[in-house]
């Protein structure tokens, strides 16, 4: 601590001082990360949810090892009973073509998670950029951006997603785009209000008076301030994106060549499973969706409750 009692004129000491400070900054970040992890561990339900999500992710990644793709090949399943209720032989029952529901679930997890994550990433990026712009820029530009956000906010996102996915060619990418493009407005709104509250703080005006331009203010002050909020929002959005994916698949807009939990439910409805007593055909994919989405919600809310007081303290 005493090294700067006299002013460090030569560069060696200057560098020492600088690298030491970089270390301090890194330590502080690490410390904060540890605090967040510790606080997160306090939320028991969220911890269980996180572990559950990790397990599901592993299943999705190793699907080909757990259940070889041939198990889905209808032509090889001629001797398997159709609509077999759950039993030791068929743990989750079979579908109308004799496929094991559990195999379809394992493969469906891939589509559901991939679409959920990709659509969320897209929605978060658009939402953050637009929200920052709407909060930072004033005058005509800000007004127009706000008008657009408001417009997308009230538009029925599912219907717009239906329109997009029925117009574009079928495929996983289409579903991702349809969900990503229609679900960013909520994020933009949250980011915008946070940006506005940060932008009204004096330190942003101070940066402006010091000579900082738009880029400096956005990258150095506004973005770091909204990031925790965006991250907490991300997990919540993954949940709703998974629901949206299954809904589109259920409406027959999914990629018919890929397994998805929504597709399983669509098949179930097409064979009138609800009124014919094939309860496992409906229960199993539904419960899977609810559990994954609930897990995302719990994790997201835990993050939110950790970051929120932080935002307030700031």
């Amino acid at each position: 601590m005493s090294e700067t009692q006299t002013r460090p004129a030569n560069t060696r000491e200057y560098r020492n001082g600088k690298s030491r400070r970089v270390n301090v900054a890194r330590q502080r970040k690490l410390q904060r990360l540890k605090e967040v992890a510790k606080e997160f561990a306090e939320h028991r339900a969220a911890m269980v949810a996180l572990v559950f999500l990790l397990v599901i992710s592993l299943i999705a990644v190793f699907a080909p090892l757990i259940a070889p793709e041939s198990m889905l090949n209808v032509t090889k399943l001629l001797d398997v009973p159709h609509f077999a209720p759950p039993s030791w032989e068929h743990p989750f029952g079979t579908d109308h073509q004799g496929r094991e529901i559990w195999v379809r679930m394992v493969w469906g997890a891939r589509t559901s998670l991939v679409v959920g994550l990709a659509a969320t990433a897209m929605s978060m990026i658009i939402g953050t950029v637009v929200g920052l712009a709407a909060g930072h820029f004033t005058g005509l530009a800000g007004g127009i951006i706000m008008r657009v956000v408001d417009f997308f906010l009230v538009l029925p996102s599912l219907i717009l997603a239906i329109v997009l996915s029925s117009v574009l060619s079928r495929g996983v990418l289409t579903i991702v785009i349809a969900i990503g493009v229609t679900s960013w407005a909520g994020t933009a709104r949250v980011v915008r209000s946070q940006t506005l509250s940060v932008a009204s703080r004096t330190y942003v005006e101070r940066a402006e008076v010091l000579g900082g331009g738009h880029w400096h203010i956005i990258s150095k002050h506004l973005l770091p301030a909204v990031m925790p909020l965006v991250l907490a929002n991300t997990t919540l959005t993954v949940g709703s994106a998974i629901i949206a994916e299954s809904t589109l698949a259920f409406l027959g807009l999914g990629d018919t060549t890929q397994q998805s939990w929504g597709t399983v439910l669509k098949n179930a409805m097409d064979v009138s499973a609800a009124t014919s007593g094939y309860w496992w055909y409906i229960m199993i994919p539904g419960i899977a969706i609810v559990m994954v989405v609930l897990a995302c919600t719990l994790v997201g809310r835990a993050f939110e409750s950790i970051t929120n007081p932080m935002l307030r303290r700031n």
């Binding site: 629901i243 299954s246 259920f250 009124t275 229960m283 994919p285 809310r301």
Partner: peptide, 20 residues
């Protein structure tokens, strides 16, 4: 929170199955 995580169409199928 649980209801929030339920896809609407699945709840519809479930109610249809049980009560219908």
């Amino acid at each position: 929170l649980v209801l929030w995580s339920v896809p609407t169409f699945w709840l519809a199928l479930l109610l249809l199955m049980i009560f219908g």
